Simulated scan of single mutants.
Amino acid sequence: MGGKVKSAFISRLLSLTLGCCAAALAAVPAHAGEQDLLASIETRGEFVVGTEARYAPFEFVENGEIVGYSADVIARVMEVFPDVKLNRMDLPFQGILPGLQAKKFDYVVTSIVADKARYEKFALSAPIADATVALIKRKSDTSLNVSEDIAGKIVGTQAGSVPLGDINAFAEQLKAQGIPVKEVKTYVGFEEAYADLMVGRIDAVANTLPALFMLKQKRPDDFEVVQPAFGPSRYITWAARRDEDSATLIRKIDERLQELNKSGVLAELQKKWIGSSVDLPLTLPAPQ
């Protein structure tokens, strides 16, 4: 082969080789070689979660520690995360889901009531508790015996919560019947609402049944749950970002929650913190 011909052949071969390499590299995903969220958590040895420790019996502070039903459940979940430390960031509820989206923490371990909007935006976990919304009143109030008796009265609940959406919908139903609610008043936390209820500034508080039963259990002489509940059947979950990076973490936590459900551990913890247990589905039904 002549010098010029040989040189052209080598040049062409090199060009083809480089082209093939470039095509192969282009086919590799941009995140290849990078750790996903679960691997990152295991590498750094820390799992950072957002919570709101003002929602007894699920999460609340006692003697400087976050305790409650969810605290016990996450402790059981962490058994499948060897050598990983749990770091809980205690935040106002209104900032938790935005904080998750902004990647301020890895996951949310607080009482997220599953509704359609949250179900579509976030990866909600397997159910950890029942979350049907009802009313609680002062025990001395004989004028409020069924949910419809809230007509003409003031009801309080937490801003940005699912109970707020449910009580607003119920208020619209009563208004259509010609018996409107006087006012739906919102609070940063439920403790402030309960305090106002106790002194008569409002007539009832709308919250999930487990939280209301816990309050009644702690203060049986002060409060009484109005039954039956007025809200649709709902469940309490945890939450993750709905992205590929979180997929393996979501799967690992859900599998562990399902194990705890099937083994009866969740039922035992419900009895411990709520006073009774409710059978929970292994996977979250799509909210209507």
Results as ranks from 00 to 15, higher is better:
50 G>A: 02
42 E>F: 05
246 S>K: 05
239 A>S: 15
163 P>S: 07
207 N>S: 08
33 G>E: 09
206 A>L: 11
111 S>E: 15
17 T>I: 10
177 Q>Y: 04
3 G>Q: 04
45 G>N: 03
202 I>F: 01
230 F>V: 10
288 Q>G: 15
18 L>A: 12
48 V>N: 12
119 Y>F: 14
41 I>P: 00
141 D>M: 02
50 G>L: 00
199 V>R: 13
287 P>D: 08
43 T>L: 07
55 Y>N: 13
270 Q>K: 06
58 F>R: 05
82 P>F: 08
239 A>D: 11
211 A>H: 11
64 G>D: 13
84 V>L: 03
230 F>I: 09
185 K>G: 05
273 W>Y: 12
60 F>P: 07
59 E>W: 03
233 S>G: 04
108 V>P: 04
2 G>L: 06
110 T>G: 14
35 Q>M: 15
92 P>S: 13
47 F>E: 00
178 G>N: 05
18 L>H: 11
44 R>D: 13
19 G>W: 03
155 V>D: 03
190 F>S: 08
91 L>H: 04
169 A>H: 09
224 E>A: 15
12 R>F: 09
140 S>Q: 15
262 K>E: 15
5 V>P: 05
254 D>G: 12
253 I>M: 11
159 A>P: 02
61 V>T: 11
220 P>G: 01
239 A>I: 07
274 I>W: 14
59 E>D: 14
49 V>W: 02
182 K>A: 15
117 A>M: 06
27 A>P: 02
192 E>I: 09
78 M>N: 11
2 G>S: 13
264 G>V: 00
158 Q>T: 15
44 R>L: 08
250 I>F: 14
167 I>W: 09
64 G>Q: 12
34 E>V: 06
176 A>D: 10
250 I>M: 10
169 A>F: 09
205 V>L: 06
118 R>E: 03
92 P>N: 10
153 K>W: 05
177 Q>N: 03
111 S>R: 12
143 S>Y: 07
70 S>P: 03
164 L>A: 13
54 R>S: 14
37 L>K: 06
249 L>R: 01
161 S>M: 00
102 A>K: 08
176 A>N: 14
123 A>Y: 15
4 K>C: 08
253 I>H: 06
55 Y>G: 09
70 S>Q: 14
141 D>R: 01
189 G>D: 13
126 A>P: 07
105 F>W: 09
131 A>P: 01
79 E>N: 10
27 A>S: 13
173 Q>D: 13
62 E>Q: 11
109 V>G: 00
165 G>W: 03
235 Y>C: 08
145 N>A: 06
172 E>L: 07
17 T>P: 00
266 L>I: 15
104 K>I: 07
26 A>L: 10
216 K>Y: 06
128 I>S: 12
115 D>Y: 04
158 Q>D: 05
84 V>T: 05
104 K>C: 02
155 V>W: 03
209 L>C: 09
53 A>W: 08
226 V>Y: 00
39 A>F: 00
37 L>F: 02
34 E>H: 05
